[in-house]
């Protein structure tokens, strides 16, 4: 069944969108990620203009993050204070990101930049995760368990000034790295159309030493606001949010997420992480191919963008 996307100005198949949303929802439920890093590339492979894929991806992320954050709110595993400081940074990063987005669109380098960011970040995160989870799987086979968090171990980040206490996270840390991390995620969110959970979660665990149990809830909490802000700014400056596309993806995603969550419970943590790592690497490789393989047509058309 065809459906016309009013902002993208094209007809697409509704079932493909629902299936895409459901598949990504399944994976996001299984791995506890927002799924933005999958949805945006999938939309681009499906010939949705990258500018619209990115802005709409940010909109779609809100639904899955909100759904997830509600569960964490109920369990009390959100550090609101930490989330708010991250969010402050996120707003700066996102505003800057939307501006860079428009500039790149005008220069005709947006697609390249988005692809490079995806390949670089997904490649790095995927490879690190794969190494970590394979080591964990090996260790599990030998029988010893090592936690992700090693308390008492401090790094240079904990020597910075302007320290602030975050009670829920049992953390006493400078606000500078928190703001910088928030800004970096906000920047990525607006350029890549992702929530940024796949970077936020490891960064909080390894750099800030936030306890694992509050990491995901807090990350989701701040992703809701960063993505919401990104969506609004994109909509106001670039007019690239396609709400029909977003709703189709969200409906599929929300339904897929519950089955994913059930499937996820049957697997162990390190197995899940290894699978997620493989998935992330696969997306990175697919995008890298487009960068390095000669395109079928070296010419392309784009509307004139005036800054």
């Amino acid at each position: 069944m065809g459906i016309y996307l009013p902002i993208a100005e094209m007809s697409v198949n509704l079932f493909v969108l629902l299936a895409m949303g459901a598949a990504v929802g399944f994976l996001s439920g299984m791995f506890g990620v927002g799924g933005g890093f999958l949805i945006t590339p999938l939309l681009i492979f499906y010939n949705i203009p990258p500018a619209i894929a990115v802005a709409t991806g940010a909109n779609q992320v809100i639904a899955s993050s909100f759904s997830g954050a509600l569960a964490h709110f109920k369990r009390g595993t959100i550090d609101f204070k930490l989330g708010t400081v991250l969010l402050l940074g996120g707003i700066f990063g996102s505003t800057f990101g939307v501006w860079v987005f428009k500039l790149l669109r005008q220069l005709g380098q947006l697609d390249l930049f988005v692809s490079l960011l995806y390949v670089g970040l997904l490649g790095t995160v995927g490879a690190l995760m794969l190494v970590e989870s394979v080591n964990a799987l090996r260790a599990a086979r030998k029988g010893d368990t090592t936690g992700l968090r090693r308390p008492g171990q401090h790094n240079w980040i904990h020597k910075l000034p302007l320290k602030m206490r975050f009670r829920a996270s049992k953390l006493f840390v400078s606000v500078i790295p928190v703001l910088v991390l928030g800004a970096a995620i906000g920047f990525l969110a607006s350029i890549m159309g992702v929530g940024g959970g796949f970077i936020m979660v490891p960064a909080m665990i390894y750099l800030l030493k936030v306890p694992t149990n509050v990491v995901i809830g807090t990350s989701l909490f701040q992703i809701i606001f960063t993505s919401a802000y990104t969506t609004i700014i994109h909509s106001a400056t670039n007019h690239t949010v396609d709400v029909v596309l977003a709703v189709a993806l969200m409906v599929g995603g929300v339904a897929g997420a519950q089955y994913g969550a059930k499937a996820g419970q049957k697997l162990r943590g390190e197995q899940l992480r290894a699978l997620l790592a493989l998935l992330v690497l696969a997306v990175a490789i697919r995008l890298a191919l487009d960068l390095f393989v000669r395109p079928p047509n070296i010419y392309s058309l784009s509307p004139l963008v005036v800054l």
């Binding site: 909109n59 639904a63 969506t231 709400v243």
Partner: peptide, 25 residues
Amino acid sequence: GFAYGVISVLLAIVIGWLGRVIFRR
């Protein structure tokens, strides 16, 4: 565009909330 963005966000929140209510995990 601004109001359109705000409505898109609210819609996403409603769908996320509905998803949580309908498919409680």
